[in-house]
Structures are given as structure tokens and as C-alpha cells.
């Protein structure tokens, strides 16, 4: 991918596989199992772009990893699914506290989500190495091989972007969980479409009228006359938190600088001192 090997390794070193706490948690759990050597090799594979494809199929992850052989190896990885009964219990626990649904809907993994699983004697994150099942088509008999380890790391990155992938690996999709929570609240089965937010049905465009065509009624909105700096330096970036993308931190820092620069320019322009 990169023609300049020095630059590639520099970038790879900067590559962090998790920025959100839950994704970091996944990596921590893995690394706590002690397969240090193999994980290190896997990490290099992941950084080097050896994972050519990775796909979530229900609770399974299927990936193609380029090894030393010309054809890439097939890696399959999955966690133990929870049974329907187990899920039933977990979701009932989740429904007992609105904070879980509220945070999940706001795109955040609740800090104490584990509590809901522990209450049912379960663990959302793999508890020991036997919880993680994996296969690789490579001749290496060790498990995890470096190909599997590479996939582990990339999964952490994926969790970062969408915390619900973790749930999917345990057997429930985000839609299923929210739907079940909805049922438990007794609010029927209607899913809020994304259009609940946007204008669902645009009203018909009123025809242009020839009367009063040229005249502007009224003055400038008084609140736009003297444009004041907002009382705090915090912005929408702080409200939303970092975006679910790999290496979010430098991106957020770049945006923060951008917002400050734009604000300074706009304040000066608003005061007419451009």
C-alpha cells in the first residue's frame, strides 16, 4: 500500500486500535490472556494491512488475511452466543435503568454496562481464552496464530466505531435489543425511523406570488445585531464526544483547532474588523 516503508512503519506506530473505553476494554481483555508473542505478531500484521477483508456475519466474523503463502488464509472468529433466555434476562436488567437505553441511543456505551450482564452471571467481554473461538486455514497449529491475532486487533477498531457489534457477537443486533427494550417499556413495536428526526413529509412548495414581491418586511433579528462569543469554549465536538473512527484523537484535536480558528475569524468579521 505504501511505497515508502519508513513512512509506513511510522504511521503504523501511530495506529491505535481503540479510542473508546469499550474498545480499549476488548484489547485489554485479549492482552491479559498472555499470548504476548503471537499478539505482537498479529498486531504487526494488522498494522501492515495484511487483513484484506473482514466481515461480520451475525455473531461470526469472517476475514481474509494475507500470510506468507500467495493465497490469503480464511479466518473465522466467534464468541459464545448467549441463549435467548440469557438475553431475555440481560435485557430485562437493562430495561430496569433508563440510562442504558439513553446512552446506547446517544451513541455511547454505558460505563456500567457490564453490571447488567454480571447480574445474570454473564460477561459481555470474553472472560477467558476459551470464550473466543477461532479457526484459521493456515498450516500453523497454534491458536491464536498471528492471522487470528491480527483480526482481534481490527475488531477492536470496529467496536470503536459501533459498540453494538459487541452485542451482535453475543447474538443480538442493536435493532433487536432496542426493539426488545421498547416492548418491555410497553410502547409497542414501532421502530423510530430515522425520518422521525428529519422532515418526513415535505409540505408542498407554496407558489410564488406577484404581490409584495420585492419588499422585505422587518429588520434584522436583534440577536444577530451584536454577535457575542458563546459563554463557553465548548462546542458540539464536546457534546458528541470523539467520532467512532480509528485514531480519533488527532482528528478531534485538529477539529478543535479548526473551530477555534473559525470562531476567531467570525468574531472579528462580526465586529467589522476583518
Amino acid at each position: 500500500m505504501n511505497s515508502d516503508p519508513a513512512k509506513a512503519s511510522q504511521e503504523a506506530a501511530a495506529k491505535v486500535f481503540a479510542s473508546q473505553w469499550w474498545a480499549q476494554r476488548w484489547i485489554d481483555v485479549l492482552e491479559s490472556f498472555g499470548w504476548t508473542q503471537r499478539l505482537a505478531r498479529g498486531r504487526n500484521y494488522a498494522r501492515g494491512g495484511n487483513v484484506l477483508a473482514m466481515e461480520f456475519q451475525g455473531s461470526k466474523v469472517k476475514a481474509k488475511v494475507q500470510g506468507t503463502a500467495p493465497t490469503p488464509y480464511d479466518v473465522t472468529l466467534f464468541l459464545d452466543r448467549f441463549s435467548d433466555e440469557q438475553w431475555q434476562e440481560v435485557i430485562e436488567t437493562l430495561a430496569g435503568r433508563a440510562i442504558f437505553a439513553a446512552k446506547l441511543l446517544a451513541g455511547e456505551m454505558p460505563q456500567n454496562i457490564e453490571e447488567a450482564f454480571i447480574a445474570s452471571g454473564l460477561s459481555l467481554f470474553p472472560f477467558n481464552k476459551w470464550d473466543i473461538h477461532s479457526q484459521c486455514s493456515c498450516p500453523d497449529s497454534a491458536n491464536p496464530c498471528k492471522h487470528i491475532a491480527a483480526v482481534y486487533y481490527l475488531m477492536g477498531e470496529r467496536f470503536d466505531q459501533d459498540p453494538f457489534v459487541l452485542f451482535a457477537l453475543r447474538g443480538r443486533s442493536r435493532t433487536q435489543i432496542l426493539q426488545r427494550l421498547r416492548e418491555l417499556r410497553g410502547s409497542g413495536t414501532t421502530a423510530p425511523s430515522e425520518s422521525a428526526a428529519t422532515e418526513s413529509t415535505a409540505p408542498p412548495v407554496p407558489p410564488l406570488k406577484a404581490q409584495g414581491f420585492w419588499q422585505l418586511a422587518g429588520d434584522l433579528d436583534p440577536s444577530l445585531v451584536a454577535i457575542l462569543p458563546p459563554p463557553s469554549q465548548e462546542t458540539v465536538l464536546d457534546v458528541l464526544g470523539p467520532p467512532p473512527i480509528e485514531g480519533a484523537e488527532p482528528v478531534v484535536n485538529y477539529f478543535k483547532g479548526t473551530y477555534a480558528q473559525v470562531r476567531n475569524w467570525a468574531m472579528a468579521a462580526a465586529l467589522g474588523a476583518e
Partner: peptide
């Protein structure tokens, strides 16, 4: 001027 206000407020 409204746009200017949006820029100042980081909206």
C-alpha cells in the same frame, strides 16, 4: 449575518 453567528457558536 446568521451564518456568521453559526460560525461563532460553532454550530
Amino acid at each position: 449575518r446568521w451564518v456568521l453567528d453559526l460560525l461563532v457558536r460553532a454550530k
